[in-house]
């Protein structure tokens, strides 16, 4: 797979920045990529600003490198949908908000947490190659190995390309038993 990397190395990029509230009114999750980072891409009159974010019409950027506490704020999964539709498959950050991390995984996308100085190195050196090994929960970037922090359940979901609801069906009996006790 070919990777093209976008660097937005700021801390605390919140979900209001990723997808502003005026785009949360639709009832489907499709097509939100065109509104991703809207206020950073367009001025108040709706004219395009000069930013790398506006150089992705063919969705060639599929890796985002960012800072600390990415996706903080609102729980809106629209943020994950918008970033996925914009083209990103992998987001590398020094940390993620807990809710966004789940939302990104629930769209079967990969979040990678690496130390801040490593982020700076990647930005300086550029990413030459990425290999994902889900069986070993690893990503190899520029010949350096990083662990993907996911549970066994999540690994199965990603490997089998199923969602959590499908996975949970095998515990239906336990859920029923629990419900009998309460």
């Amino acid at each position: 797979m070919k990777y093209k990397v976008m660097n937005l190395v700021y801390d605390n990029i919140d979900t209001d920045i990723i997808i502003p509230k005026q785009f949360l009114k639709q009832t489907s999750k499709d097509g939100l990529g065109k509104y991703a980072f809207y206020n950073w891409r367009y001025d108040a009159k709706g004219n395009k600003k000069q930013t790398i974010l506006n150089e992705n019409d063919d969705k060639q950027y599929n890796v985002l490198i960012t800072g600390h506490n990415f996706g903080c704020g609102s729980s809106r999964e629209h943020a994950a949908w918008a970033l996925a539709d914009y083209g990103f498959d992998i987001i590398i950050a020094s940390s993620f908000s807990d809710i966004f991390y789940q939302n990104w995984l629930n769209n079967n996308k990969i979040p990678l947490i690496i130390a801040n100085d490593e982020i700076m190195n990647l930005v300086a050196e550029g990413i030459k190659n990425i290999t994902i090994n889900l069986l070993k929960k690893r990503i190899i970037i520029n010949d350096k190995c990083y662990e993907i922090k996911i549970s066994k359940k999540r690994q199965i979901c990603l490997l089998e390309d199923i969602d959590e609801i499908d996975y949970t069906t095998k515990f239906t009996t336990q859920i029923k038993e629990y419900e009998l006790l309460i």
Binding site: S75, A80, Q102, N103, N106, N107, I165, T168, I175
Partner: peptide, 11 residues
Amino acid sequence: GTSEIAHVFAT
């Protein structure tokens, strides 16, 4: 998130 809402609905 919304995927989790769906999970709670279902299970």
